[in-house]
Amino acid sequence: MSDTILTLAGVHTHIGEYHILQGVDMQVPRGGLSVLLGRNGAGKTTTLRTIMGLWKASKGKIHFDGRDITAMATPDIAQLGIAYVPESMAIFSDLTVKENLLLAARNGPLDNSRVEWICGFFPALKKFWNYPAGNLSGGQKQMVAIARAIVEPRKLILVDEPTKGLAPAIILSLMAAFNELKASDTTILLVEQNFNFVRKLGDTVAVMDDGRVVHTGGMQALAEDNDLQQHLLGLSLAAHQ
């Protein structure tokens, strides 16, 4: 985590007549897990979508791994080694679990050893390997979405609300997967409302409010400062342990 893999400098995003991001400045260190926190409507999801090129920045610059990606198309951004797991999961419901992963394997056939590694965290994937993904439960669909993002090594994974609606056992598996990804030098930028989850995983944190980043620092420091939590988020993490 000695250098920065992603930088947003003065990023503004308009969606129709709405000015959502209003000058976002943020740096994501390489090789760790950075958490993006904030109240509902603060601009967290818009930030991820703007990084991925799904919504275009109207002002400012986004640099990834030394390259300006501000105006790049989403497929070109993905080719640089960025994966995105949206809150909606966006899986292909009519395709099987296997076919969903095949579509995400840009470099050819599935790597069986990597699939086995992924199924070690999410055994249900193997059980439903040839089932239409649309027939799975919400938690199982989230497993498919995460698996699709990591079916090949990525430099950066953007993940929006991965634990929403998941059973505790699946959250523990997700935590183990993220820890192993961090150990493999994969950088993760995570939007999440489950504070107990992020305080155990997060290395750094950025807090958004009204379309801007209003605080950056270490996750542990924020987790230990109830007054700062109340000031930035209007709640205490201790209530979510």
Rank of each mutant, 00 (worst) to 15 (best):
S2A: 11
D3R: 01
I5P: 03
T7Q: 13
H12G: 04
T13Q: 13
G16L: 07
H19V: 14
L21V: 04
D25E: 15
M26N: 09
M26F: 12
R30P: 03
R30Y: 06
S34P: 11
L36V: 09
L37H: 03
G41M: 08
A42E: 11
T47P: 05
R49C: 08
T50A: 05
T50Q: 01
M52W: 01
M52R: 03
M52I: 07
G53C: 07
G53P: 07
K59P: 08
H63T: 15
D65R: 01
D68R: 07
I69R: 02
A71M: 14
D76T: 08
I77H: 03
Y84R: 01
S88K: 14
S88H: 13
V97C: 09
L101N: 04
G108H: 02
P109C: 06
K127L: 13
N130R: 12
A145Y: 02
A147P: 08
E152G: 04
P153R: 08
R154V: 02
R154M: 04
V159K: 00
V159W: 00
D160P: 02
P162W: 03
P162I: 04
K164R: 12
A167T: 10
P168L: 06
I171N: 01
L174D: 05
A176T: 03
A177I: 05
E180R: 10
E180T: 11
L181R: 01
L181M: 10
A183Q: 13
L189Y: 09
L190P: 04
V191Y: 02
F195T: 07
N196D: 15
L201Y: 03
G202F: 07
G202P: 07
D203H: 10
V205F: 10
V205Q: 09
A206P: 04
D209C: 10
D209N: 14
H215C: 09
E224F: 01
D225H: 10
Q230I: 14
L232H: 01
L232R: 00
L233V: 05
L235E: 12
L235M: 13
L237M: 14
